[in-house]
Simulated assay, not measured.
Amino acid sequence: MENQDFKIGIKMVWFLVMGNFLLTVLGALAKIQDWEFSQLFLTVGLMLFFSTWIIILSDMVKNKIYNKTFWILTMFIIPTIATIFYLIQRNKLLRLGQRFS
């Protein structure tokens, strides 16, 4: 199996990851401050989070990456941090996966 890129483009995935992070943090802060639309921010942020989590997890499963088991387990243990670090390290992991497979 060769390296397959994301179906929607890496820039769009980065936009979704940063958007879900910012909306979730904004929604949590708004909930603490009792803003009127706090539930809307939190709901949209969490929906974006779950959609990007599925996109990145499917990318991990279908590509040959180095330490695939570690990355998939990390997605379940610390999902927010794992998505950002995986996107940063993705090209390096794909090269190492090709070399050591």
Score class of each variant (00 low, 15 high):
Met1Ser: 04
Asn3Arg: 03
Gln4Pro: 03
Phe6Met: 03
Phe6Asn: 05
Ile8Gly: 08
Gly9Gln: 05
Gly9Leu: 05
Ile10Trp: 05
Lys11Asp: 03
Met12Ser: 14
Met12Leu: 15
Val13Met: 04
Val13Glu: 01
Trp14Glu: 04
Phe15Gly: 09
Leu16Met: 15
Val17Phe: 00
Gly19Trp: 11
Gly19Ser: 15
Gly19Ile: 15
Asn20Lys: 11
Leu22Ile: 15
Thr24Ile: 06
Leu26Pro: 10
Gly27His: 08
Gly27Ala: 10
Leu29Cys: 12
Ala30Val: 11
Ala30Met: 14
Asp34Lys: 15
Asp34Trp: 11
Asp34Ile: 12
Glu36Lys: 15
Glu36Ser: 14
Phe37His: 12
Thr43Leu: 13
Val44Gln: 11
Val44Gly: 10
Gly45Tyr: 06
Met47Thr: 15
Leu48Ser: 13
Leu48Tyr: 11
Phe50Asn: 09
Ser51Cys: 13
Thr52Met: 10
Ile54Cys: 13
Ile55Cys: 07
Leu57Ala: 09
Ser58Lys: 15
Ser58Cys: 14
Asp59Arg: 02
Asp59Ala: 01
Met60Ile: 00
Val61Met: 04
Lys62Glu: 00
Lys64Ile: 05
Lys64Ser: 02
Ile65Lys: 04
Ile65Leu: 00
Tyr66Gly: 02
Asn67Ser: 13
Asn67Arg: 13
Thr69Gln: 06
Thr69Ile: 08
Phe70Asp: 09
Ile72Tyr: 00
Ile72Thr: 02
Ile72Glu: 03
Leu73Gln: 07
Phe76Asn: 03
Ile78Arg: 05
Ile78Cys: 04
Ala82Phe: 03
Ile84Val: 06
Ile84Arg: 04
Ile84Thr: 04
Phe85Cys: 10
Phe85Val: 11
Tyr86Met: 03
Leu87Arg: 00
Arg90Ala: 02
Arg90Pro: 00
Arg90Asn: 02
Arg90Leu: 00
Lys92Tyr: 07
Leu93Glu: 02
Leu94Met: 01
Arg95Leu: 01
Arg95Trp: 01
Arg95Lys: 02
Gln98Arg: 08
Arg99Cys: 03
Arg99Lys: 09
Phe100Asp: 12
Phe100Tyr: 13
Phe100Leu: 13
Ser101Arg: 09
